[in-house]
Design a protein around this nucleic acid. Structure first.
Lengths: 394, 394
DNA sequence: GTGCTTGTTTTCGCCTCTGAACTAAGATGA
DNA sequence: TCATCTTAGTTCAGAGGCGAAAACAAGCAC
């Protein structure tokens, strides 16, 4: 029942080109010979296609490897400077703009502080646009070299060209951030939920690397998840899939800031943890959390249990091969409590799917949101290199 | 990060052939002219391809439609008798074997009763194999005409050729039903969880028809779900995705027969409903449930609430465009309580994803499991018609 | 230098799609 | 009755794509 999609002989070339480029990107320097094995394409096709890519400067040579008794292999790699991607993290307290080359090395970045409760959409858009200018000039990159701008934001992002956002905690209800940005730039824009961009980053460059069915959970102020099915982020019909933090684990339980009751976030979100521990925060949540973890408080054990229930629900429903625990709260909890979290998950899930899952910690830091946002641009580039280039130039 | 998959020019033909056949199958009698519009293929391609399909007897003519002032269109349809599919429902109390033509019209069926607690795998396999012989001879269909056998079973089915099953309630732990069956037949076999085959049936021929992102839930003795992503059943890494009945909605809640606590099934499974209502069953659960529903018992309202929580978790996590409530308990509850179920779901889910979801009742009866199992064969046929035929013949 | 090995490119045949020209089959109206 | 119009379906030539195999390239060993 998959959407009918006619194919013509040209699509093959495009598809195989993407396959080749992906192989080249993820395997690092590789010879044409290796590429035939990796992609399954014939040597002939690899040869002509790499010739094209070299001619377009998308791929460059990267030395040789002598072989015992035969012609040496010429190594190829994706040209990291063929183009650049901007990644933006719009968070509660700041807007961060980073410029990345194709290898996702950060070339420049700039932060703008946001006053809490001052999340004027126009201001945020201005920060992003001026941030783009700043990082470009800092890194000496021309706008024509930029393949696109990825933006990670809190809340739900409607599908569609306007990038309309609903973020209750932000006071945004129907803010067309994409449209606001498009007034100031003609570069391709990709707006997505920040938990999803972080998930994207962990999937491509962090602990989720190589997984095809996975869930990357984000534990921080908010609680969310990125569900990965068949190697790509699952978005659901209106792009809001993955709102794990507001699934209920205690029917009619603790009230949540979303207005509901018994949400997972109302147990394992940072505010909930501190509240349940009876901590009145002085503003530094990280320190507060460290205090709770160092204490003998039963809240710690309870938190592990609740988290285990939440994770077990994912195990039973999604049956992933890997669960990555990310977000600063998640990583902090995991550092000392991962074995307990695994036990709690096992206790609440079915044996078969649990046995198929490995639960690991994320290994990217707080910059993962911006990196993941830039990865949206990279993904587009790898899927259809020439098209992305044209759009960017136009 | 999707699996690299090289394509050659031949794959195009295969893919387009599948596209064409699907269009023909789901649109009913259609002219070549309509097919060009529906598939996006050129008239030339449609012409040569339909000629092939007519030659192979996969497609047949189905009359004409006169047009005002031009050559009349010749209607085409899939030949319902090109091949047949066997669908098997292995349930707690019986094994049912049905023979379906390509239009999924049931041509013959046979039931075998199972004594409770007498679920010998060998016996079940023998029932299935002799059932296949019976329905074939009843319908006068030769084995060579059968494209495959689909089997829906309780529990988790491991991916792989042996069709290994883990079904706690059945007393099956690692039963290789597929391997047992293969000893008695050379036809292609498809073994899948019964909730998934039922979901498949509702998706293709029932209330889920046309939905691309959907969840079909099954409420009966057990509670499960079929998650549909991009038009196909999502299975997870080891084929056990969708174990919704054992997701927790009350941390540390009521004990469940799976050994866990607070599972959804321990609140809305039929045994749980009756237990919570204080009914001691005489054996006729349908009557018992009717009694509970007719009473003023608060258990009814509570059940609606718990079900709403479970459904809301799906809404938040999966963001489907449609939720179909199936299974005999689900349909019975839904008949009178659907508005309340919708309210309870709304109360426990986020506004945006809830607004994007419609919650409807399943419209296929208890035969949906066998029908869905046969649909597994149909799906294979539509995806690669010629390959399926060859396998069946071999 | 001559043979051997291995990597890369070129040549050639086959396959698929599409646009355009062409054929088929009925309606219409003088 | 028959020329003309309209719409459906088929045929053909051309372009683009892939793979097998032959050809070419570039080292090593003796």
């Amino acid at each position: 029942m998959a959407r009918p999609q006619r194919r013509t002989v040209r699509d093959i070339r495009r598809g195989n080109r993407a396959v080749l480029l992906r192989a080249l990107y993820f395997s690092g320097p590789t010879s044409r010979n290796d590429l035939t094995a990796r992609t399954g394409l014939s040597a002939a096709t690899v040869s002509t296609m790499t010739a094209d890519l070299l001619g377009e400067n998308i791929v460059v040579e990267a030395g040789q490897v002598e072989s015992d008794g035969g012609r040496p292999r010429v190594l190829l790699r994706v040209n990291p400077e063929y183009g650049f991607a901007v990644g933006v993290d719009v968070a509660e307290t700041h807007v961060r703009v980073g410029l990345f080359d194709l290898e996702m090395t950060e070339r420049a970045k700039v932060d703008y502080m946001l006053r809490p409760a001052r999340h004027d959409p126009e201001l945020v858009a201005r920060h992003i646009l001026s941030g783009v200018e700043v990082v470009l000039s800092d890194a000496g990159v021309a706008p024509e070299q930029v393949l696109g701008i990825g933006v990670g934001v809190p809340g739900i992002v409607e599908p569609g060209a306007d990038g309309v956002i609903h973020a209750k905690t932000f006071g945004w209800d129907g803010v067309p951030l994409g449209a606001l940005l498009r007034r100031g730039t003609s570069l391709p824009l990709y707006v997505d939920n920040g938990a999803k961009t972080m998930g994207q980053a962990e999937l491509w460059f962090g602990s989720g690397r190589g997984a095809s069915e996975a869930v990357i959970v984000l534990l921080g102020v908010g609680v969310g998840a990125t569900i990965v099915a068949d190697g790509t982020t699952f978005r659901g019909v209106s792009s809001s899939a993955g709102e794990w933090g507001h699934t209920k684990i205690v029917a009619n339980g603790r009230p949540c800031r979303c207005g509901g009751r018994g949400c997972l976030e109302a147990y394992v979100g940072i505010e909930a943890i501190l509240d349940r521990a009876g901590v009145t925060s002085q503003g530094d949540w990280e320190e507060d959390l460290a205090g709770v973890l160092a204490s003998e408080s039963p809240v710690v054990e309870e938190t592990v249990t609740y988290l285990g229930v939440g994770l077990a629900n994912l195990v039973n429903l999604i049956n992933p091969e890997k669960i990555v625990i990310g977000g600063w709260v998640g990583v902090r909890l995991g550092e000392s409590l991962l074995p307990g979290i695994r036990r709690a998950t096992a206790a609440n899930s079915l044996a078969e799917p649990y046995a198929a899952t490995s639960i690991v910690l994320g290994r990217l830091g707080p910059d993962a949101v911006a990196l993941g946002a830039a990865t949206l641009v990279l993904e587009e580039f790898l899927n259809a290199p020439q098209v992305a280039r044209i759009t960017a130039a136009g």
